[in-house]
Write a protein that binds this DNA or RNA. Structure first.
Lengths: 110, 110
DNA sequence: CCTATATATGAATGATTGTTCATATGATAA
DNA sequence: TTATCATATGAACAATCATTCATATATAGG
């Protein structure tokens, strides 16, 4: 008996797929959401902008750990920051963050 | 000079945060989207349900690798499957998958 | 029964990643 | 300047994870 064939299906699907580079960017973005610490940071920023040491205190984690994660979040353009004297305040970059997290919450609460 | 104080802010924010368990579930969900192979599989299933070997052929990866990833996707309830003789067809579980990926795409294309 | 095809799975491995620790930079006040 | 607070960063380590390989299960046909 012949092997399973799906050349027709494959050519259809291939045409619809974005470039590898774009898909890699997309999965990298979701990776940033894929960590409890970062999710907590984002959720905290829903309420208001916060300085690094406040976030560290809130999550009961070291300032260093938070700083490293904020760097990732900033690189992914999910947060922005502004300096005021010694302290640096971080805030949500835009509404996509809320919407993405909302959709995620909808999925797990079923 | 005194140390920076933010007890007021912290109590406000703490009240709004979901339970740790829920946030862990959420980050686990996004972790599943945080891999190029799995994103490609989901995107392929946008078009139509597909059997394991068709997906493997499409992504030019081994059947084993795809099968392992499908297991993760199924566990996260992002895909479902049905058996028809020897072949098993996988399909998107619901519309949240599309919406989450759409929001992600919107964010990176700016 | 035996063979072939399709899929699943456990163990091993190499790569990635989150946190810690030590330290560096930046900013303010005395 | 010196001291202190706030933040950033590089290196190291432990833990997690995606793929491969070998093998097991499942279904169909002869």
């Amino acid at each position: 008996m012949k092997k399973h064939d799906h050349t027709k299906l494959l050519s259809d699907v291939t045409g619809q797929m974005p470039a590898d580079e774009e898909l890699a960017e997309l999965s990298e973005l979701f990776s940033v959401f894929g960590d409890t610490t970062r999710i907590k940071i984002l959720w905290a920023l829903f309420e208001s902008e916060m300085c690094v040491c406040a976030i560290a205190e809130l999550l009961k984690m070291t300032q260093s750990a938070i700083s490293h994660q904020l760097k990732l979040l900033k690189h992914a353009k999910l947060v922005g920051c502004r300096r005021e004297g010694k302290t640096v305040y971080y805030y949500l970059a835009d509404d996509h963050v809320r919407r993405i997290i909302d959709q995620g919450m909808e999925h797990i609460s079923e």
